[in-house]
């Protein structure tokens, strides 16, 4: 999408380890198991995707990793640190980008508010950092615009710049590309990979778009129907850099995509029976 700026410094992602995460919601007097004993390991700087049918607990799992909601049981580690009780420096990129930007702040303020409270930066240093990330998403010229003046795709790029400007050890993406048009989505995929290549943060992407998962990720984890449980982990393994046109025709891409689709389209009752 754009040139990789060589002077940019990597964030250096940390590993994420999830042990025996379960989540039970209580509703209308009854209880409902949303996530069932999920264990998962994400390597430092890895791009992992989680796919699964709607309602299987993907968002719940990701919010638990982010520390936005507590698990019923199990633990989450970032690096060596147990972050289950004490949220660490991970940033959650919301699906509802248009609502997640603060409408009373312009683009620059939206980006800066993610990190200025955390680090004692001078005004000009903060602005430099903000503009570094705005440049990476190609929105420098729009720094003084307010969210309502931007298109949906632009708003999502601001949200991405804001998330990365906080320089988190891990970026958690909850279907961040699902509500933009198909072309913008391809554009944002390329942008995300470009940023990831430069910054080397650890990324966990939740999606129900199998193509998106395989195109972006190193590995793809498959969740079963509710209660969500990991039933498969597949190496995507196409070479990088991945490019919108060629990668989608890569035999490896097509094979992995078909394998995952077949896995996901299995009937709910049969989901837990290992395919022999």
């Amino acid at each position: 999408m754009k040139l990789v700026t060589p002077q940019t410094t990597p964030i250096n992602g940390q590993s994420i380890r999830i042990e025996g995460i379960s989540k039970t919601f209580s509703s209308h007097g009854g209880t409902m198991l949303a996530v069932d004993d999920v264990a998962l390991s994400v390597r430092p700087g890895e791009f992992l995707a989680i796919v699964g049918p709607s309602g299987c607990g993907k968002s719940t799992l990701l919010q638990i990793i982010a520390g936005l909601i507590p698990p019923t049981s199990g633990r989450v580690f970032l690096g060596d640190k147990d972050v289950t009780a004490q949220p660490a420096h991970m940033v959650y990129l919301f699906q509802q980008y248009s609502k997640s930007l603060l409408p009373w702040m312009n683009v620059e303020e939206n980006v800066m508010f993610s990190f200025t409270h955390r680090e004692q930066l001078s005004k000009s240093a903060a602005r430099d950092r903000c503009h570094e990330y705005l440049q990476m998403v190609g929105l420098t010229a729009f720094h003084s615009y307010f969210p309502w003046q931007l298109s949906g795709g632009m708003q999502q790029r601001v949200a991405i710049a804001r998330a990365l400007a906080a320089e988190p050890h891990a970026l958690l993406l909850d279907e961040p590309f699902s509500s933009v048009d198909a072309l913008t989505r391809l554009d944002l995929h390329a942008l995300m990979l470009d940023l990831w290549t430069q910054k080397r943060f650890t990324a966990v992407l939740v999606t129900h778009d199998v193509d998106e998962a395989v195109f972006l990720a190193d590995r793809v984890a498959v969740l079963s129907h509710r209660p969500g449980r990991i039933v498969d982990i597949v190496d995507a393994g196409m070479p990088r850099p991945r490019l919108p046109v060629t990668t989608h025709q890569d035999p490896r891409f097509i094979a992995v995509r078909n394998q995952l689709l077949a896995r996901l389209l299995t009937k709910p009752d049969a989901a837990d029976v290992p395919a022999v």
Binding site: A66, G67, L68, P87, H89, M90, V91, Y92, F94, Q96, K99, S100, L102, W104, M105, F113, S114, F115, H117, R118, A166
Partner: peptide
């Protein structure tokens, strides 16, 4: 979602009050 955004960036409470709740 605004309070969640504030949480994910680890913003301190007084800051959230001033920059999120108040506006």
């Amino acid at each position: 979602i605004y309070t969640q955004v504030a949480r994910t960036f680890g913003l301190p409470r007084s800051y959230v009050l001033r920059r999120v709740y108040f506006p």
